Simulated assay, not measured.
Amino acid sequence: MLRALAMAAVLLTAVATPAIAKPALPSCASNPGPNTARCLSVAQTAADTGHGADDLRAAYNLPATGGGGQTIAIVDAYDNPNAESDLAVYRSRYGLPPCTTANGCFRKVNQRGQTTPLPAGNPGWGLEIALDLDMASTACPACHILLVEGDDPLDANLAASVNTAVAQGATVVSNSYGLDEHGSMSKVAAAYDQPGVPIVASSGDSGFRTAEFPAVLSSVIAVGGTTLTRADNARGWTETAWSSAGSGCSAWVAKPAWQHDTNCGMRTIADVSAVADKLAVHDTYQVPGWVTIGGTSASAPFIAGIIALAGNASQVHDASYLYAHADALYDVVDGHTEGMDCGGDYLCNGRPGYDAPTGLGTPNGIGAF
């Protein structure tokens, strides 16, 4: 059975409610059926201590301007009926300009590119949508946002949604979901190969394990995750590999010519990374408002936003552009991701230079993009 992920490890919070340790609970149905994606948002009550937009823009040295005329497409399953209103609260809190249907900045369509009928609502995937919209907004406040909602999480419908995003004028497309790579993924792989429009996907939230589709495709920029911590240094922050950051060595996809790591003879993920731990997000569909969220579900739309911010998307068809500009990234040299044990190897540990959990590193401005 194909198993899919929507990579948000979520910490729910109610303001003024003390943190209470509880078993992690998935936000979405655990057994949605064959060939159907399931989101694995993991929820636990906690205080709202997540990084906000101002923290992230400072930590990654992002310019105050840029992104005009660019469109970030977010592809997810099901509908979040509160998506636009929750996004407005997030952007207002952090001083980001309004992005609404009325001012032409925000659009929400179904997988056929129509505003109606939208798919059925789903609170679990709705929380995923809220996370994706907030992170894309943080990276590129001036960008337009196109939310494409698949009918359901079937891989064919998510692929159709990617095609619709490109047809609707997306500059870059973000996908915060994945499933174990498999022998028949070629049936939908073409949707993730769009000349002139970079396709970004989360690397996964289960550590070093089976490589994730669509991130494993060589046409896709696979985004891993880090933990970001304030520090008394020149940057003001340090980063380590996030403990659940997805990494993997493909059993199906050949190693691209531009990837040269030594211990995986096939495609390795991830390519690049960004924070995937302790992020402030606003959602009122599944949860009561402000929450703290983690997961490579956050890092993928953030990287998509930076690609759009740089205004160079048509030159970044796949990750080869990043490999040629790796010196413009922050190298993440510490940390360890869980999953299968790889000893001290770079496949599950942060190391100088390329490593699988964090790829080439994280954004230092827009120079690598």
Rank of each mutant, 00 (worst) to 15 (best):
Pro81Thr: 00
Val220Met: 04
Met1Leu: 13
Cys28Thr: 14
Asp283Trp: 05
Ser244Gly: 14
Asp180Phe: 04
Val109Arg: 00
Pro214His: 01
Leu147Trp: 09
Ile199Phe: 09
Arg57Ser: 07
Leu217Met: 08
Pro18Lys: 13
Pro117Val: 04
Thr116Asn: 09
Met185Pro: 10
Thr116Gln: 11
Pro23Ile: 10
Gly183Phe: 11
Asp283Pro: 04
Asn31Leu: 13
Gly121Lys: 12
Thr337Lys: 03
Asn349Thr: 12
Val42Asp: 14
Ala170Glu: 06
Pro117Ile: 01
Cys264Ser: 10
Thr45Phe: 13
Gly311Ala: 00
Val275Tyr: 02
Ala64Arg: 09
Arg3Met: 11
Cys140Ile: 05
Asn122Lys: 10
Gly169Trp: 11
Asp277Asn: 15
Ala251His: 11
Gly295Tyr: 05
Ser41Pro: 09
Ile20Arg: 15
Gly207Cys: 07
Met135Ile: 03
Pro301Gly: 09
Val333Leu: 04
Tyr323Gly: 01
Leu5His: 13
Ile293His: 11
Ala245Val: 05
Asn233Glu: 05
Ser243Glu: 12
Pro117Leu: 09
Gly335Tyr: 02
Ala308Ile: 02
Pro153Ser: 00
Asn175Phe: 00
Ala274Trp: 02
Ala160Gln: 11
Ala276Val: 01
Gly204Pro: 05
Leu96Trp: 08
Leu133Tyr: 04
Gly294Ile: 02
Arg112Asp: 14
Leu228Gly: 08
Ala201Lys: 09
Gly207Val: 01
Arg235Ser: 07
Leu347Phe: 01
Tyr78Trp: 15
Leu158His: 09
Arg107Lys: 15
Pro153Glu: 10
Pro288Ala: 07
Arg107Thr: 15
Gln194Lys: 12
Val223Leu: 01
Leu11Glu: 14
Ile366Ser: 07
Ile269Tyr: 03
Thr229His: 05
Ala120Asp: 14
Pro198Cys: 00
Ala274Tyr: 07
Thr268Gln: 03
Thr49Glu: 12
His325Pro: 07
Gly67Ile: 03
Asn82Val: 10
Tyr94Asp: 08
Tyr90Lys: 08
Arg93Gly: 06
Asn263Ala: 13
Leu154Thr: 14
Tyr330Arg: 08
Tyr346Glu: 02
Ser176Thr: 00
Asp54Pro: 00
His182Met: 08
Ala167Leu: 12
Gly305Met: 01
Ala83Glu: 06
Thr115Lys: 11
Ser137Met: 05
Leu322Val: 03
Ile221Gly: 07
Arg267Ala: 11
Glu338Gly: 15
Asp355Gln: 05
Ala59Gln: 05
Ser161Pro: 07
Leu25His: 12
Lys108Gly: 02
Ala308Cys: 01
Ile269Ala: 04
Asp193Leu: 03
Ala156Leu: 13
Tyr285Thr: 13
Thr227Trp: 05
Thr115Val: 09
Val316Asp: 12
Tyr177Ile: 06
Ser243Tyr: 15
Leu96Pro: 02
Ala14Thr: 15
Arg209His: 13
Ile366Val: 14
Val253Leu: 05
Ala29Ile: 12
Lys187Cys: 07
Gly295Phe: 00
Pro97Ala: 10
Leu118Phe: 04
Ser250Asn: 01
Gly350Gln: 11
Ile303Leu: 12
Ala234Leu: 14
Ala46Thr: 14
Ala298Trp: 11
Ala189Glu: 09
Gly104Val: 06
Val172Asn: 00
Ser174Cys: 07
Ala304Pro: 07
Val172Cys: 00
Leu12Cys: 12
Glu181Asn: 06
Pro301His: 07
Pro357Thr: 04
Arg230Pro: 03
Ile72Arg: 02
Val281Glu: 10
